[in-house]
Design a protein around this nucleic acid. Structure first.
Lengths: 184, 184
DNA sequence: TATTGTTATACTCTATAACTATA
DNA sequence: TATAGTTATAGAGTATAACAATA
């Protein structure tokens, strides 16, 4: 089937997905990731830029999901909400490209947010194939609160750094990930 | 079933998994992730430490997998090989804790490396329940070549940075991800 | 009773490919 | 012919829970 906007058939909404079972406190991998256990020789891993970033990313992801659990908001969902809020009328294809995921993934991500009443598909004024993605009123209110929680989380993870250090970190990370791929 | 080490029944070896279909050049998400498209308003995302790290991590992961495709080595596989090489006799439970994954995941990861003839289970001298994990002769040779390729990759992604900047980056990332979780 | 390795199962995420409607 | 959105399917990766052997 294709775009069912103008038919009476209700769209199949997807259930809001669980935030991330990887972080359940229950049993096995339940604890917190410790990036540097004592009595362990990490070898070359300790000298690699890539591993240092991976370590940080795991910890940040954990804290993000914990901090936003009450809203069922994960990092990709927050990114999508921000992009939609700041770029009104983006299409699903745009969203996919911006987030670096496949179009089908963008549809699933958006469907989850739609089931949470945070976003809606509006008709594109220029292309009858496409939708203009938008936040609902609820979505705008929720995003305001969520953004505050995300900024709190981000401040918490950066608390060990001075503001000057944090700016330096952002600048160096930006240089690390330029627009064009690195030369092979 | 439990530990079948001393029986004649052959263990079920797992096929080496494909490196990561997410990076296929074929169709949809096939291109390279561009962390900062023009004409897109990223809003608060541009100010978040967490998003900057996520951007960098995606790009680094892509380049890692591309660089190591010939060996079928992914970041988790490389980490596991390094840990086993530098900490002879670690058990599967140790490996899981070090890498921050569940024990069942460590088994699957190790099984994949075993199917590639890079590692082997040796009897633990002190605990008949456990194995002492070790590299095979092939594993040691392969790891030497793979480590060189990984270091080349890491140098490439850090090429935009001076060595002083790279050291600063590592130091700041280390401060960001300390041993203990951040205070809620 | 607790721990080690193992297996079964489930779920998330992501991709590829085919399809409909429209450009 | 190409593009937008959708769906189906498949795969990797991770988790939880139960189990046998051993501590």
């Amino acid at each position: 089937m294709a775009v069912t906007r103008n038919t009476s058939k209700a769209r199949k909404t997807r259930e809001p997905l669980a935030p991330d079972p990887a972080l359940g406190e229950g049993g096995d991998g339940g604890g917190h990731f410790n990036p540097h256990l004592p009595d362990v020789d990490y070898g070359v891993l300790d000298t690699l830029t890539g591993y240092a970033i991976r370590r940080a990313q795991i910890r940040i992801y954990e804290d993000f999901v914990r901090s936003l659990a009450a809203w069922q908001i994960t990092p990709p969902r927050f990114s999508a909400l921000q992009i939609i809020a700041r770029n009104p009328g983006v299409r699903l294809t745009d969203l996919a490209r911006i987030l670096g995921i496949a179009r089908s993934g963008a549809v699933m991500l958006f469907d989850a947010l739609e089931a949470m009443q945070l976003v809606a598909r509006e008709p594109s004024p220029t292309d009858r194939r496409a939708y203009a993605l938008a936040l609902t009123a609820t979505g705008r209110q929720t995003l305001a609160a969520v953004t505050e929680a995300v900024c709190d989380h981000d401040a918490r993870i950066g608390a060990q750094l001075s503001e000057a250090e944090r700016q330096t970190l952002l600048r160096l990370l930006d240089k690390l990930a330029p627009g064009e791929p690195w030369q092979s």
